[in-house]
Every structure is written in structure tokens, then in C-alpha cells.
Write a protein that binds this DNA or RNA. Sequence first.
DNA 1: GTCTATACTACGATAGAC
DNA 2: GTCTATCGTAGTATAGAC
Lengths: 202, 202
Amino acid sequence: MTQPVRRAAAVSRRGSDTRRRAQRAALQLFTRQGYESTSLREIADELGINKASLYHHFASKEAILQSLFDERGTEAQELLAWLREQPRTPRLLEETVLRWVDTFTSDKLAAIRFMTANPLVIRGLADSSGRSIGAPLNAIVDELTALVPSGREQDGLLVRMAVLSINAAVQAAVHAEVTDADVIAAAQRAARALVREVGGTP
Amino acid sequence: MTQPVRRAAAVSRRGSDTRRRAQRAALQLFTRQGYESTSLREIADELGINKASLYHHFASKEAILQSLFDERGTEAQELLAWLREQPRTPRLLEETVLRWVDTFTSDKLAAIRFMTANPLVIRGLADSSGRSIGAPLNAIVDELTALVPSGREQDGLLVRMAVLSINAAVQAAVHAEVTDADVIAAAQRAARALVREVGGTP
DNA sequence: GTCTATACTACGATAGAC
DNA sequence: GTCTATCGTAGTATAGAC
């Protein structure tokens, strides 16, 4: 009479254990082989269950993909809100990029690796409200490029590259043997260097 | 008796017109939708021919992909050869990266765009000798990272990022309206800035 | 929640006529 | 060189028993 009390707590907030194991396996396989090249059979095999059983947890293959971004962070939205209420000072560009690169953490690298491995899939992905997955970050980049004198498209590109430096670092690290901490640190140094390049050649 | 003389010259060195049109269409579709998401039917439709007719020009879908890299440039190999016979001076890193980024030209951007859209396909691609497509460039990067004091993995990553700056610039430009010339110029400025970052913090 | 069985579709690829 | 017709396979997805 005193045994099956806190089941829900053990399984935690959202989804069953199988569901989360499937998400984990899918993220791994999607990153290694690509989304289109990964079949539901492969994911199911990884869990030791039947292909059809996956449909008890997800409505479709795309639903698995979508679910991987359901609980994603809100750093971009928060930074965007912060940015929009800042006075337009010359230092704002650098300050914003530095704040952005400081949000890079090791536990986000798996998502970044998936993104760099499947750029076209990401571009076609929309969240539950129909907005593109990358929309908040793109909004930040647009605000930042607006800080750059118009007509200086190169500087706008360099700002974009600074914001995307974590992606570039992950890609650069594909053929190298480095720690996650080194990847993040390199991305941060690169972002700083790129912002300096924008400010340094007026 | 004086008409069909220089047919071969008009059709040029390698392959028929249909073959080249197929390559062109394939490169476009592979870049826009991804290699796996592009079917032979779509490529054939673009040419206004039947799917089966493609097999007269290419043995398989992968053969179309391979053919896109058959006539690729030899810049990487040449730079590698040059690099290997240089004395090891402190300036060699910067000098090599600058030589590399100076090989960026507008007519290579289509290939770069394809690569950034299909990173996993590229990783799995081998040329006719069985070597990875990116092997020469990787060899350059390896030589260059060897110039960096060992144990400084971050610097090695930054060098890799500098060499890959054209890819990063292309990706940054996806959501921006800029000219090819601006993309290349931004990539070159980024490469310089990254090399400076390596040398600047000893 | 997992299974077997199956429907349906699209793909890459081949055979053979013209 | 292009076509029609077809093969074999593998994928996503569903129905229904347990």
C-alpha cells in the first residue's frame, strides 16, 4: 500500500522514458547521418523496439524532429528584448555580441552540431506558432546590422559571422580532436575578433 | 560537303550538352533542397527529358554528384605543395592563410554553397582515387596547425576557422541580400582577423 | 506500450523499342 | 539519345491483436 506513490515525478514532466530515449537516439542519428538518411527503423533499432511502436510516441517522423526543438532555450528572445530597450551607443554592437557568445554552453553543442549537419532541414523548420526556428536569432542579427552604417554590407556580414561563430567553430572542429570547452572558447575569441574587425576599419 | 566540320569543338572537351545541363540543374537542386531530397525525376523535369534518359549520361545518382567535383580546381594541392617547401618562419601561418583566401573567386561560390548545404554528403564523398574530397584542404590545415604551439587547441581551431571563412561567410549570407563580391571580401577580412587573433595572444 | 501485418508511395535503376 | 514500361526495394504510415 505504500509503494507506487511518486511515479509521475520519477518520469518527470514531459513524455515517457521511451519517448525521451527516442529523441536522444534521433538527435544522434540525425547529426551523424542526416535527417533524410535516417529511417524510423534505425531509430527504433537503437531503442530495441519495433518501428511501428514509435508511432505511439510521435505522430510522424517530422514530429520527432519538431519535438527536439520544443524545449529549446529562450536566450535569443531574452537577448532580443534586452537589445530593443538599449540606447543606441557605439558600444552596443560589441556589448550585444559579447552577451550572445556568453550564452554558449557545452550542453547546447549537441543541438548546434545537429544544425550544422542539417542546415536545410533547419531552414524549413517552423515552431508551433509557424515561425522559423531561427527567427529570434535572425531578428537579433537584423537589429545589429542596423547599427552598422548602411551601404556597408561587408560589415553586416561580419556581424552575422560573429553571431554564428559557434556554428563555424563546431564545423571547424569536425576533423579535429578538441574538447567542447575549446570549441566554445574558440567561438568566443572568433566573435570578439570579428566584432573588432567591424569597428576597426571605419 | 563543307558543313558539319567543327562539331567536337562546339560541344567542347567533356560531355554532351544534355550532360552539362543536367550537372547544372543537379547542382542547383542539390544546393536548394539537399542531395537526398532531390530525385532524378526532378532533375530530368528541369531538362524536359525523361528520368530514364539521365542514365544514358550518368551511371547513377551518385555519379552525377561525383561528376560535379571532377573538374574542380587544384588550388589546394598547389598551395599545399608550396607550403611544404617553405622555411618555418613566424609569418608563414599568416602568409599561407592570405594566399588561400586570395584564391576565393565568384565562380567558386556555387560549389561552396553546395558544400555548406550538404556537409554530410561532402564528408562521405571520395574522388576517383578514393581520397576524401576535402583531403588537400585538410592537409593544409594540418600543416598550419602544426605551426601553432602544441597544446593550444583553441589556436588550431581558429586557424581552421580562418581557412573555412569562405564557408562561414556563405552561410552568414543566406538570409542577407549581398553580392558575391561582398561575401568574398567579408570572408577575407574574417580570415585576416582570425589569424591576427591567433598571433595576438601569445 | 509493443507487436505483426500490410497499405501505399516514391525512389533508383534496368530492359528494350524507336 | 530519348522514350515507355517495369522491377525491386525501402520508406512512412496505419490497422488491429495482444
